[in-house]
């Protein structure tokens, strides 16, 4: 929806614009990809964007696994949601960068960790291509149509706050990513009929029981913290955790964070209140 709102904003500012998501199976909190194209002339190419002028990264943790600058054009700009300053980003190459703590802003203004509207404000500031008024029009058009005006208003406020808070700088190079990160066998190599047992590939496990290749911990905004002393080992958190992130120990449970999406169910069901949720701030990037 943010990509759509950006297209509306660009259109408001007099550009020709289109936007579309990568039609994946979006789940709340899961990494998604969306594209916006705008320019002075009528847009005809309807494909995904492979060589963007601008990249907007809504979740900083993606930088750990995805080369977000792959394809970025020379002189292009990356906008990242992070508490870090723009000069302290370490990416695959040097690039103009802008950062803003959109998560805090979103939580403050919309009471949710949905950072997309705040990042629109950041993009307007960083790129200088569209006005904050255009962003406002985009949000009202796209979000006001589907949600209530009150919610749209709050999102506009978040975008304005992010616009003000966005800082510009230059990201450093030095981060190395593996060349290919996906198992893409040829038509001849694919298991016939896609009937697939557990297979170990150079890109990790696929097939039966392979979901563990996908570490969903990066979706998390808040993380559960266990107070060992209070745990009575009632195992309700272990029973309910939809992501099997609680492990039974000899005396008390342990929380493993690789797959924890931070839903907070464990804290909610904990009878002795031994688990509480804490806002998670990305640790310093290990270059």
């Amino acid at each position: 929806m943010a990509a759509q709102a950006l297209a509306v904003a660009a259109s408001h500012d007099g550009y020709s614009a289109i936007a579309f998501p990568f039609f994946g199976a979006e789940r709340r909190g899961a990494p998604v990809l969306a594209f916006t194209r705008f320019g002075q002339e009528r847009l005809r190419v309807r494909t995904q964007v492979y060589e963007p002028h601008y990249v907007v990264v809504l979740d900083e943790s993606l930088i750990d696994t995805v080369d977000v600058l792959a394809g970025l054009r020379p002189g292009g700009l990356v906008v990242v949601n992070t508490t870090r300053s723009p000069d302290r980003l370490v990416l695959s190459k040097k690039a103009k960068s802008a950062t803003v703590d959109a998560t805090s802003i979103a939580l403050e203004y919309t009471k949710q960790a949905a950072v997309n509207t705040a990042m629109l404000g950041a993009f307007a500031k960083a790129s200088g291509l569209i006005t904050i008024e255009g962003v406002e029009a985009g949000i009202m058009e796209v979000f006001g149509r589907r949600l209530s005006k009150e919610i749209a208003d709050r999102n506009v406020a978040a975008a304005r706050a992010a616009y003000e808070a966005t800082r510009l700088g230059e990201a450093d190079s030095g981060r190395v990513y593996p060349k290919a990160s996906k198992w893409l066998p040829t038509a001849q190599e694919l298991p016939p009929g896609l009937a697939t047992p557990t297979l170990e590939t150079p890109f990790g496990r696929v097939g039966v029981g392979s979901s563990t290749s996908n570490r969903t911990g990066g979706w998390r905004v808040e993380k559960p913290i266990l107070d060992d002393a209070k745990c009575t080992n009632c195992l309700l958190c272990w029973f309910y955790c939809p992501d099997s992130s609680i492990v039974r120990g000899p005396k008390i449970v342990e929380i493993h964070y690789d797959y924890c999406k931070g839903c907070g169910v464990c804290a909610a069901v904990c009878v002795p209140k031994a688990i509480h949720m804490e806002r998670e701030v990305e640790e310093e990037v290990r270059a």
């Binding site: 199976a25 789940r27 563990t212 969903t216 939809p242 992501d243 690789d258 797959y259 999406k261």
Partner: peptide, 11 residues
Amino acid sequence: LSGHTACPGCG
């Protein structure tokens, strides 16, 4: 197993 992509807190 974990690593599935259900929304957080999926019943």
